[in-house]
Computed example of a mutant assay.
Amino acid sequence: MFWKKDKSIRVELVTPITLVAQNPLVSPPDKTSPEKTSELKRSETNIDLAFKLINYAGLGLQAALVVYGYSLLVGYYNGFGIDTNEIALSTPSLLLYGYINLFSGALAAANYVPIIGPGILAFCFIAVAAAFVVLVVKNARVDTVIGLACWIGFLIFMAFFAPAMGVQQGIKMSKADVKGFTPQELSKGLDKQHSLTTDKGTKLIGTLILADGKSTFLLVDRTVYKVDSARGRVLRETLLSPKPDPIQSTKQESRKIESTEDVQ
């Protein structure tokens, strides 16, 4: 019989049985929560993109300052009847004019409101730095973005406004070296008068508008003199006068016409 002791039954397990002892203190990982998997991602910095953004930003800023400086000088010299084609304007001078006027104006505008103005100005730099960090650093945490944006924004602020502050400090130093004026008079600024002698011996005293290697433009009362810098010869005289009001001029012309008709 099959149940006798001499008989043996062989059983083969197709799938092995494994026993795992689980620690009850450790909770099993939740596979359904994507937030935990996203937190485990490491932040990656794209160095190539960072250098490209810095180069593009530098070129764009220089181009904007050159265009702004050129537009500023065109409007300024046009008010005195000076054409920009008759003067030599170099790229460094345009860049300098644009930088000084733009950032000096930004500092002056920020000083109008003691607390809010500088705060808004600093926030603009921090916002630009935050955008740079978000583009360059992938999977960055919020606190990391805020910290880097504050530091980078502060460095950009110092890099941009340090030369403008140097110009303001130089003006203060020049006022300190001037003798014979009271502090109240120096606070309002000094009126600078220049004089030059023409080839005919005539001495012209007025406000210097522009002086380059070729010509010197001097404003005397209401006349702008263009003088040759090498020979001292007066090349041109431009008389400045206010433009008449078109409405008043039309009224005067109509009155003249009516008076002539009455006489006839």
Rank of each mutant, 00 (worst) to 15 (best):
D6C: 11
S8H: 10
V11L: 12
V11W: 09
E12L: 10
V20W: 09
A21P: 07
P24Y: 01
L25V: 14
L25D: 07
V26S: 03
V26K: 11
P29F: 11
D30L: 09
T32V: 09
P34F: 07
E35H: 03
K36M: 11
K36C: 02
K36T: 14
K36A: 14
T37H: 09
R42D: 08
I47C: 06
F51L: 14
F51T: 10
I54H: 02
N55D: 14
Q62S: 11
Q62H: 02
V66C: 04
Y76P: 02
Y76G: 00
G79E: 04
G79P: 01
G79W: 07
G81N: 06
E86N: 11
L95F: 08
L96W: 12
I100F: 11
G105H: 04
G105W: 04
A110F: 12
P114T: 12
I116A: 14
G119R: 09
C124Y: 12
C124S: 12
I126M: 08
A130D: 12
A131M: 08
V136K: 03
V137K: 11
K138W: 03
N139G: 03
R141H: 07
V145Y: 01
I146H: 10
I146T: 10
C150R: 05
C150N: 01
G153N: 02
F154A: 09
L155E: 12
F157C: 10
M158H: 07
M158K: 11
A159M: 08
A159K: 02
P163T: 05
I171Y: 13
I171H: 06
A176G: 14
G180N: 10
T182R: 14
T182C: 06
Q184T: 12
S187A: 15
K188I: 05
K188Y: 08
K188P: 00
L190T: 05
D191H: 01
Q193G: 00
L196M: 15
K200M: 09
T202I: 13
I205H: 04
T207Q: 07
S215K: 13
T216C: 03
L218V: 02
L219R: 08
V224T: 00
Y225K: 03
D228F: 01
R231C: 01
R233V: 15
L239F: 12
I247E: 14
E253C: 01
R255V: 01
R255E: 05
S259C: 02
E261R: 15
Q264R: 08
